[in-house]
Write a protein that binds this DNA or RNA. Sequence first.
DNA 1: ACTCTAAATTGACTAAAATCAATTATTCGA
DNA 2: TCGAATAATTGATTTTAGTCAATTTAGAGT
Lengths: 239, 239
Amino acid sequence: MAIAPLSARNTGSCSNCNLRNLCVPAGMSPDELIQLEGLVATKRHICQGDALFRAGISFQSLYAVRAGCFKTSMYGEESRSQVIGFQIPGDLLGLDGLTDAKHHVDAIALVDSEVCAIPYARITQISKECPSLQLQLNRIMSCEIIKDHGVMMLLGSMQAKERLATFLLNFSERFKCLGHSPTEFKLHMSREDIGSYLGLKIETISRTLTNLQTDELISVKGKHINILNLVGLKGLIDR
Amino acid sequence: MAIAPLSARNTGSCSNCNLRNLCVPAGMSPDELIQLEGLVATKRHICQGDALFRAGISFQSLYAVRAGCFKTSMYGEESRSQVIGFQIPGDLLGLDGLTDAKHHVDAIALVDSEVCAIPYARITQISKECPSLQLQLNRIMSCEIIKDHGVMMLLGSMQAKERLATFLLNFSERFKCLGHSPTEFKLHMSREDIGSYLGLKIETISRTLTNLQTDELISVKGKHINILNLVGLKGLIDR
DNA sequence: ACTCTAAATTGACTAAAATCAATTATTCGA
DNA sequence: TCGAATAATTGATTTTAGTCAATTTAGAGT
């Protein structure tokens, strides 16, 4: 948990953010974007391993990931825990906090990361003059629900190989949207985290990864993934 | 699929609905409740087996369940399907439609049911004068996300017996909130549906149910469940 | 009430993933 | 750069849930 460099002194304007088409302002007109001036109050650096927030603490802001990678985990009774998701730039954190003004998951930085804090009070305030912001928040939350349903389907109906293929293809797609390579990327989370997310034990993750490599669908070097056969990988799922 | 009796000629006012503390108006003051007059446009009867809406069709309204029971299911590539949830009175249907104005799941009535249709356009319109409606919608969506996370934990980290116990306790709690018995109730969905929802095959559902009965934690007579030992059932999960 | 059909249960067996255990890589800090 | 600690891989074995198959039970429609 080293000290992250405090580089960004961006004032927090969405208008000139390179993530504006993937983040909260997505689909909003330049006129509307101006109304969003002052939406983002502060930027925060989170060092690898540190928590952006934890389950139980009071919810104040949503967080848009600007750089880095996070995992969110929830906790049940008696030592039960579950990784709920992984967030990369453009993703929003904290949407589970609006119910009772408390966070329900831990958000942990998997690498040194940067977020834009968006105070919820400011969202509701700006929404009054800019209804499309509120509509956009509704869309984002609805989208979150759809994504969760996808994970439920993965966990409820897929076997290990299919789950891992889906997982890799999901990251491939998301990195592609960010302008990165869809076939070569680094997964910052541990096998433990992947296992928890996919409802599998780490040994199964290891074995299945080796398995996909043997099939020449991917190549794995530690946390580095190289997708050798995107079509073949997709074929594992539709089967 | 018989014709359901058209009994309710309620005009659609939330103020005198007996579900107002469990449904959209929950937590709103009497003053605010008056502003909600005209929120509900129409009531609809849905016969057992019929769809309230289907994945892919255009989204217009949210639906509050007034009576009966629904299941929602999503579909993946090639014959894959997954039951996403079960809705009983007070629950809201259609929250996944706000992203792209399309539904993403099928909502099927498991018994003859009744819903209040709440046009989304009207929600956004009323929200302008009544910001607490918008806040309430945000809370509801956030709550939906939290509930989905709970299912993800169930699917990702519990074994068959724990999943079924959680499932039964969840219904017990929800029926209790509706003023029904928390220990005796009818589950209208098939074993197939329960299995899909819990990520298990129907044979496993059957066996596990028998198993819980042998342990004298529940008693099962077809779709009728009687929880004999609530504490014992809870004990299966915390372990 | 009766019949036909669909749903649920039960048993025997198989397959998938978990567990246990040992080894090999990585990572991080001195 | 080295060495301890942690993470990941691989193998052997067990456990759990899935599959296949046969009954039994429950429901819908006449």
